[in-house]
Amino acid sequence: MNRIDETFARLKEKGKRALIPFITAGDPDFGTTRELAWEFEERGADILELGVPFSDPLADGKTIQKASQRALERGATLRKILGLVEEIRSSASIPLVLMSYYNPILRYGLKEFSRDASSAGMDGLIVPDLPPEEAEPLLRADEAHGVDTIFLLAPTSPEARISLISKLSQGYIYYVSLRGVTGARAELVPDLASAVARIRPYTEKPIAVGFGISTPEQAREVALYSDGVIVGSAIVNQIERHLGQRDLITLVGDFLASMKRAIEGLPFDN
């Protein structure tokens, strides 16, 4: 059993949901990402998703576009990010998942990437612009090196695709809560619970919900009917808000901790 499966199994036993924060690797620099990763584990993150910055992030809203820009300006590359994963792994035990557009991985070389990512201690990979129809070469490479390939489902996915993607996705299924790009939203979409329920008959695999989950209240609600809550832009907004502050790590950690309390059903202080 790999780290992702173990994590969900352990949480399930306790009747708990996974808190999955997302940050862009290298935003604003590698030191901050490393410290945040460790802070997040200490304050209750169950899995960490690290975004690989890309020049043309067409699935991302303004928040993550800007974070990618900050990271690229400081020289972040996929190769250096794998080095960062190795560093983080040296004192982290939570699963580490990389989220990258396809081109940087393709350029790196699929086999070389899976091999290097696995040996750096990475557990899973999400490629938002790679549907299963085009994913066979990457799946083969990932499987050879024990890396989970995590696929996404969307509100627009018809039954046939829910069935296909539920079968193929490893570790968990990433359910995109809304039609649109990443980014904090004031409200959750109204039919989210039934949208998640629509997937259940096809799979026993954990379903984590992401895109637009911005507040502890929203996280609590999503935790009622999913197996994991992915929070990205809301955290990246916190990083941006505290850029240059000495206590950035603690302040962003506080925000994460409020999310954690929310999904555990505890009182939270926003």
């Binding site: 612009d129 790679l130 549907p131 129809e133 696929f151 489902l153 969307a154 509100p155 627009t156 995109v176």
Partner: peptide
């Protein structure tokens, strides 16, 4: 090929 987010696949 088709290298797009899942949201667009049905469209």
């Amino acid at each position: 090929g088709k290298f797009v987010p899942e949201t667009l696949m049905a469209a």
